[in-house]
């Protein structure tokens, strides 16, 4: 039983990180039909933001938000420089543009920072465990779960209570009509990118805090997983992305924990089989929605 609860915490923590990343992909996709493969670089940027803030002597508690801000700024910059000029273009054009952005940023990281992993000094206070009702919880995992919940609640409030949030939900259904309300298309798109940067930044910081190092390719694998999660949930559906993220996280953690040792190396294969099964049953994803992407 203890073992099960322990794994549950692991699954919530990993699934939450996937959920944040998948949500960032979905927010941008729902607005402009772009699958942003440079999303992983936003995570990496947050990691380097953390490292350099600490090197500059910023206290850890302030370096965390600074790292997230780096990811937000990079996301907005990406939109302004690369994606604005191809807005409304075909899905293929958008996809190839995002591959290019991803490759360029990765090379910049490799050449101007370091191709090798750089260590992040995580304060001792965070690397321990706490005991709650006989359970040993990793502090970082506990924080990660709490932060994920806070982000999901915050984003939900933003989308339902503010003009820009409502405009984003409306734009996901019919962008042209949102412009007929006098709402600037550029503001809506820039906000979507800023939110995706925020989510990737937070996920990046949580990821780095667990691994203790940053390297230029760091974002690739988690964002690939997040992309799978977003597909399971139904691409463009925000609640679908969150559901997909948790489903994938749970699957991975429980396969890891309960598969016999001889099958462990097939863990990812089993996870992907599950994804295929879901898509056979619901080709549009679990929480599919109709998307109209017209600018």
């Amino acid at each position: 039983m203890d073992m099960f609860l322990q794994q549950l915490v692991n699954a919530l923590s990993l699934g939450g990180t996937y959920a944040l990343l998948a949500l960032g992909l979905a927010v941008v996709f729902s607005i402009m039909g772009l699958i942003n493969f440079a999303h992983g670089e936003l995570m990496t940027a947050a990691g380097y933001g953390l490292i350099f803030s600490l090197l500059l002597g910023v206290p850890f508690a302030l370096a965390l938000p600074a790292a997230v801000v780096v990811a937000i700024l990079l996301a907005v910059l990406m939109e302004r420089v690369a994606f604005r000029s191809v807005r409304g273009a075909s899905g293929t054009t958008l996809l190839l543009t995002s591959f290019a952005v991803s490759a360029i940023i990765r090379v910049l990281f490799q050449n101007f920072i370091s191709a090798r992993p750089m260590a992040v000094r995580i304060p001792m206070a965070l690397s321990g465990t706490i005991e709650i009702a006989g359970l040993h919880l990793g502090i970082i995992q506990a924080i990660s779960i709490l932060v994920t919940i806070a982000m999901l609640v915050g984003l939900n409030l933003f989308l339902h209570r503010t003009v820009l949030g409502r405009a984003m939900r409306a734009a996901a259904e019919d962008f042209a009509i949102v412009r007929l309300m006098g709402i600037r298309a550029n503001a809506v798109v820039a906000t979507a990118f800023a939110i995706s940067g925020l989510l990737a930044g937070v996920a990046g910081v949580l990821w780095v805090a667990q691994r203790g190092s940053v390297d230029p390719l760091m974002g690739f694998l988690p964002v690939l997983k997040a992309f799978i999660a977003a597909i399971i949930g139904g691409l463009g559906s925000l609640s679908g992305a969150v559901a997909g993220g948790f489903l994938l996280g749970f699957t991975e953690v429980f396969l890891q924990a309960f598969l016999p040792e001889s099958l462990l190396s097939y863990r990812d294969a089993f996870a992907i089989i599950l994804v295929i099964a879901v898509l056979l049953y619901a080709p549009q994803g679990l929480l599919a929605r109709r998307t109209v992407v017209k600018l």
Binding site: V163, R166, A167, R169, A170, E173, D174, A176, I177, V178, L180, M181, G182, I183
Partner: peptide, 26 residues
Amino acid sequence: MTLTPEGRRIFPSLSVDEHLLLGGAA
């Protein structure tokens, strides 16, 4: 100047009140 488009083009998942508030965003 504005347009009431052909086919109504309402936002299905938004509430009536949200439509009005968005409409007044300017």
